[in-house]
Amino acid sequence: MAVTTDNLAGAFIAARRGHKLVDIATLPVPADVDAGFAAQAEVNKGMGYPLAGWKVSLGEGGRPMAGLMQGPYLKSGDTYRGVHGAELRVEIELAIRLGRDMPLRPGQPYTREELIDHCDAALVGIEIVESRIADWTNVPFPLWLADAMGHGGYLLGPEVPFSIFDDVPALTCTVELDGDVLYDRQALHANGDPLVTALAWANRSVEGPLGPLKAGQIITTGSLCGGVLAPTVGPVVARLDPVTAISFALAEQGD
């Protein structure tokens, strides 16, 4: 197990430092989800990433999953630079920012209301999905988890009322790339209420190697539009109507 974790973490660290992709055929696959978490933690440690944020989801059997979002954290108007040849996807999301620590509370799970009470802001966000794996069409989930579930970067949009979580279907997601509309549909979250995933992570049974939930961290709750593939780089406008539009650009390293 240790050899697999060390080899896998080393491959991802080298890819991140060298701004390169890794052939999936050369990567050892973690034995299970726990090994995937362990490898992800080793990558974060090796890169010296801050514990700045989380992307969360529910795995098989409803088990909470997470990838650390190390950044870059961008704002509207900025440029995200991906690795040459990487597949980039755009996800319109809702996020929360913790205003207080949320230590594990075994036997006394947090409620949705308590989760909101621990936050000091709700925000619109755009996640850029960019895996370090060259072809991640059929990636085993523990390997995907080791790569922080493909997290590339995150654009922080405006703060919004927490009531936005109560009626997601009232929103519309639109993604335009260089003037072409790639996506234009009603907002939809896989779990209905986007806060389900964040609450599940706050109520996980053990802290695990990724660390605790701390004040100031961002938790992004999952896509409202799936993963919209960007067929090329260029200027992007992502809209969550009627709330906001976020403009940014996709480019390759060195452009």
Score class of each variant (00 low, 15 high):
Met1Pro: 02
Met1Lys: 07
Asp6Met: 00
Asn7Cys: 09
Asn7Ser: 14
Asn7Trp: 00
Ala9His: 04
Ala9Tyr: 04
Arg17Asn: 14
His19Thr: 14
Ile24Asp: 04
Ile24Glu: 13
Ala25His: 11
Leu27Trp: 03
Val29Met: 06
Val29Gln: 07
Ala31Asn: 01
Val33Lys: 03
Val33Leu: 13
Ala35Trp: 00
Gly36Val: 01
Phe37Gln: 02
Phe37Gly: 00
Ala38Asp: 10
Ala38Leu: 03
Asn44Leu: 03
Asn44Thr: 01
Met47Pro: 01
Gly48Glu: 04
Pro50Asn: 06
Leu51Asn: 10
Ala52Val: 06
Val56Ala: 05
Gly61Arg: 05
Gly62Trp: 08
Pro64Leu: 00
Pro64His: 03
Met65Gly: 05
Ala66Asp: 06
Met69Gln: 11
Pro72Gln: 10
Pro72Val: 01
Gly77Glu: 11
Asp78His: 14
Arg81Ser: 15
Gly82His: 04
His84Phe: 05
Gly85Lys: 09
Gly85Thr: 06
Gly85Asp: 11
Ala86Ser: 15
Val90Met: 15
Val90Gly: 07
Glu91Pro: 05
Ile92Asn: 11
Ile92Tyr: 04
Ile96Cys: 10
Arg97Gly: 02
Leu98Ile: 07
Gly99Ile: 02
Met102Glu: 08
Leu104Glu: 08
Arg105Trp: 02
Arg105Cys: 06
Gln108Ser: 12
Tyr110Asn: 08
Thr111Gln: 08
Arg112Ala: 05
Arg112Met: 03
Glu113Thr: 15
Glu114Ile: 03
Glu114Pro: 01
Ile116Glu: 04
His118Thr: 10
Cys119Val: 12
Cys119Thr: 15
Asp120Val: 09
Leu123Met: 15
Val124Tyr: 04
Gly125Phe: 02
Ile128Cys: 03
Val129Trp: 00
Glu130Val: 02
Ser131Asn: 10
Arg132Thr: 05
Val139Asn: 03
Pro140His: 02
Phe141Pro: 05
Pro142Glu: 04
Pro142Ile: 04
Leu143Tyr: 03
Trp144Ala: 13
Asp147Pro: 00
Asp147Thr: 10
Gly150Leu: 01
Pro158His: 09
Glu159Ile: 01
Pro161Asn: 11
Pro161Leu: 09
Asp167Cys: 02
Pro169Gly: 09
Ala170Gly: 15
Val175Gln: 12
Val175Cys: 10
Val175Ile: 15
Glu176Pro: 03
Glu176Arg: 15
Asp178Tyr: 12
Val181Ile: 15
Leu182Thr: 15
Asp184Arg: 13
Arg185Ala: 15
Arg185Ser: 15
Gln186Leu: 11
Ala187Asn: 10
Ala190His: 12
Gly192Ile: 07
Thr197Lys: 07
Ala200Val: 13
Trp201Asn: 03
Asn203Thr: 12
Asn203Met: 11
Val206His: 09
Glu207Phe: 00
Gly208His: 06
Pro209Thr: 04
Pro212Lys: 12
Pro212Trp: 09
Leu213Ile: 07
Lys214Tyr: 00
Gly216Val: 13
Gln217Ser: 13
Ile218Thr: 08
Ile219Tyr: 03
Ile219Trp: 01
Gly222Gln: 11
Ser223Tyr: 02
Ser223Phe: 03
Val228Trp: 13
Val228Asp: 15
Ala230Met: 10
Pro231Tyr: 06
Pro235Gly: 08
Val237Tyr: 01
Val237His: 09
Val237Glu: 01
Val237Gln: 08
Ala238Trp: 05
Leu240Ile: 14
Pro242Tyr: 11
Pro242Asp: 14
Val243Pro: 04
Thr244Gln: 07
Ile246Asn: 04
Ser247Tyr: 02
Phe248Leu: 14
Ala251Arg: 11
Glu252His: 13
Gly254Asp: 13
